Simulated assay, not measured.
Amino acid sequence: MSASPARRFASRRGLLFGGAAASAGVFLAGCTSNDTGDDEEDSQQAPVAEESEGPPVTIGFAGPQADHGWLNAINENARSRAETYADVTLEITEGSNDTATQIGQIETLINSQVDVLVILPADGIALTQIGLTAMRAGIPVVNLDRIFDNPQAYRCWIGGDNYGMGLNAGHFIGEQLRDVQNARVVELSGPDNLELTGQRTQGFDDALANYPNIEKVARQAAEFTVESGQEVMSGLLQAQPEFDALWNHDDDQGVGALRAIDQAGRDEFIMVGGAGARSAMEAIQADDSVLKATVLYPPTMAASAIDLARALGQSRGVGGLAEFEIPSSITLYSAVVTRENVEQYLPTGFN
């Protein structure tokens, strides 16, 4: 028999505001699953490991519109991960980039009394209040990637490292060009109205500061789309008749950038991508273009968010850690994928 709303509310408040967890049952590095009968890895799914079934948990998932390969992979990772658990029911919204619509969708999930919410807000600041509303109602919130403006609006945040993306891209390029005198680098960034773009550029610049032989000679912003990548890259190629390396913030716009590069017949430089699209990894594997690496911003974070939500709903901690509670924040590492390690990361590449 299910607990009364009052008991459910009381137990949730204890979980949110300091109650000890019953056991340590989730291991995020390997993640968790009840399904051990299939050894094949989904092309967009995090690796799984066996774990015993626990109490049933209903997880509400709300994200923005999947109008980009990475966002679509986020949704697929959440769905696929939830399906591996016999004790998880996933209620997923349509997804919208309109903040009022997304707030309404989350309100519906709150009113349906889901046990835990996973929210990737279209706008973290604009949706902070609805996160606070859920937490005050005793529903733990796992804030995915785009962070709320108030830490009281979520129990746990998990997301990528935009600064780390730029830092690791910069160090990879720096090492490749260490022996090149007066090396010239260009940057094809994401939209400048996004905070994450500035973080990626800052990390890149900080890394290049360690290599006095390298100068960043140009930076242009695209829009995370194939079309904008091709258009902006064409302009960069015309303005820069010769350079040694290119860092592109996003593999979707990188498809367009590679088209422009092929059309211009340029191959004197190396290119590093960003995010970890399957097409980019396959190009790195084939080693038949200027694209030699991509820096991950892994959509598998959505699978881990489901793991965290399940852990919260079942009063579990994180396996491998001494604490009884899950962490308040988890920042994923932006690994550099090259021809040497692409086989390892290829299963996580998104379409």
Rank of each mutant, 00 (worst) to 15 (best):
G54H: 10
F27C: 09
P191I: 07
L332D: 08
A49H: 14
L132H: 02
G170N: 01
G18D: 08
R13C: 03
V342C: 09
Y297F: 10
V226M: 02
D179A: 03
L291A: 06
A245L: 09
P327T: 07
S96D: 06
T133D: 15
Q113N: 15
Y85G: 05
Q129V: 11
D115V: 01
A183D: 03
S334Y: 07
Q113L: 12
R81N: 03
V232C: 02
G30C: 12
S234Q: 05
M301D: 09
R259S: 11
I130C: 03
Q202P: 05
A21L: 14
E242R: 13
V342K: 00
L177G: 02
K216P: 14
G60D: 07
I261A: 00
H171A: 14
P140C: 01
T36E: 14
A46E: 02
L296P: 00
A20L: 09
R178H: 08
D251K: 04
V180W: 03
P212E: 07
V185Y: 05
L236S: 00
G276I: 04
I261S: 01
A257C: 04
A222T: 13
T36K: 09
E343D: 15
N150T: 10
P55W: 13
Q344L: 10
Q202W: 04
F172R: 00
A322R: 14
M271W: 04
Q199D: 13
D179N: 14
T99E: 15
Q344Y: 12
V272W: 13
P212L: 02
A126E: 06
I270N: 05
A49W: 06
S279Y: 11
P298G: 03
S315M: 14
S52F: 05
Q105L: 02
G349E: 10
L196N: 08
P191M: 03
V118H: 12
D39Q: 13
F324Q: 13
I326P: 04
R136F: 14
L332W: 01
Q176F: 07
S11M: 15
I330N: 05
R219Q: 15
R146W: 08
N168E: 10
A302E: 10
L120P: 12
G14R: 14
D288S: 03
A309P: 10
G159C: 00
G190H: 00
V180L: 01
N143A: 08
Q263V: 06
A286Y: 14
R81S: 05
E195I: 13
